[in-house]
Design a binder for these strands. Sequence first.
DNA 1: CGGGCCATTGAAATTATTCAAAAACCGTGG
DNA 2: CCACGGTTTTTGAATAATTTCAATGGCCCG
Lengths: 240, 240
Amino acid sequence: MQTVRKDIHNSDIPALCQSCEARHQGICGALTAEQLSALAKHTRRVKREGGQELMADAMPIPAYANVLRGVVKLTKVLEDGRQQVVGLQFAPDLLGRPFASESRVSVETASEVELCMIPKPALENLMRDGSPVEHRVMMQALRELDEARDWMVTLGRKTAAEKVASFLYLIATHIDPTEEGALATFDLPLSRADIGDFLGLTIETVSRQMSRLKADKVIEIVNYRHVTIVDLAQLRLRCG
Amino acid sequence: MQTVRKDIHNSDIPALCQSCEARHQGICGALTAEQLSALAKHTRRVKREGGQELMADAMPIPAYANVLRGVVKLTKVLEDGRQQVVGLQFAPDLLGRPFASESRVSVETASEVELCMIPKPALENLMRDGSPVEHRVMMQALRELDEARDWMVTLGRKTAAEKVASFLYLIATHIDPTEEGALATFDLPLSRADIGDFLGLTIETVSRQMSRLKADKVIEIVNYRHVTIVDLAQLRLRCG
DNA sequence: CGGGCCATTGAAATTATTCAAAAACCGTGG
DNA sequence: CCACGGTTTTTGAATAATTTCAATGGCCCG
């Protein structure tokens, strides 16, 4: 439905993509100072809570967006409602299928997210003249393709136990790489239902496997959402 | 191991990528006449039988190649030998991961194929100056990403029966689109083992589901490899 | 015609799902 | 701070789906 919300007005100030620029990653890293400040005139920094749909499958993309913070999930559904999460996006990923009139997935915030919204024409103009931006976009597409294929192995060939371990390992290594060496502790960006949809499992199977990892002292489940990895090497081992 | 084989010498004549050029698809369609004839000096048209490894996972890419005919499979393996086919490539796809020092998948011929081999520097020079070739490569990457995500739904959320139907439907709509309307009849480019590895199923389950489709008169199994689609609409229905 | 290789079929075992209930968490309001 | 209701998660038992193990059958090629 994409109605304009209060939080958009709250952050209606042109903003550079600090986070991605700083890391020299993402789209903004490919821009000159002038291009960057020109782009900044069109971008809007917005915050969204979890569970908001940003783009719908088979519908036009309202705008591109850079993930600055938080996790965004890409999903597809079968006619009868079965759902599959086909990707997770972290900072500084670009949201929105380039060079297509419609999105090929549904894009939803998984956790609270900060985005740098980029109007369609703004980004498409930047990509037109064979600019480095196009190259950046391609590099992301190639990386996502590698990740999708890695995940196909998980979906097709791993057991439920290995799938859950793989998911926790993925999150542990992508979210908040706080202190080096310290045992990772974090909020899961997905509900059990979403984890199931990511792994091709039911909620119950996910829950059982998490309980087993807890019983085996590989992880601690602080509460439903918050998890601590007690033994990362063991978790890695259990990824198959 | 990539040893030079007899069939390379047999076709040691510079050749344009007729097939992909004709369809205005693939890489060559983005080239000017001069670029095309310059490239032709470096390309080699080669034929390979099924079951040959073209590139190995985690190894440098010997050269890029355009698929002119036949089917190539991309696979990944777990340490314990479990295998997953993560993609199939048809004409006029480009083989070889751009902008990476190593392949991220193992690339093997599934059927007899014809390839247009493009030396690494030849293609990389064409991509350097923000040329349309880079754009073509990106478009293929984006398309493959869409396909990978479609397949993730199949792997994660479909039943064995739906998976096998989906595979047959995929092949029927990609291979040899002979006469319009005519019931598709073709050689499967994959063995039962490969189909299993593509679908995340065992050989036996694939076989059972194929037998069921045959019993239900959706397909005819002429022999192990040759299949006729009797009722494409019904097959489509069974894809889930 | 026989051997080798795939593929099919059957029965038992395993894994994951489904259905059902209990427990833990979360936010709210007293 | 605690109780309450709604929601999510966990746990258990029965069921269904797929795999595994084992044997048979069919095709191809000499």
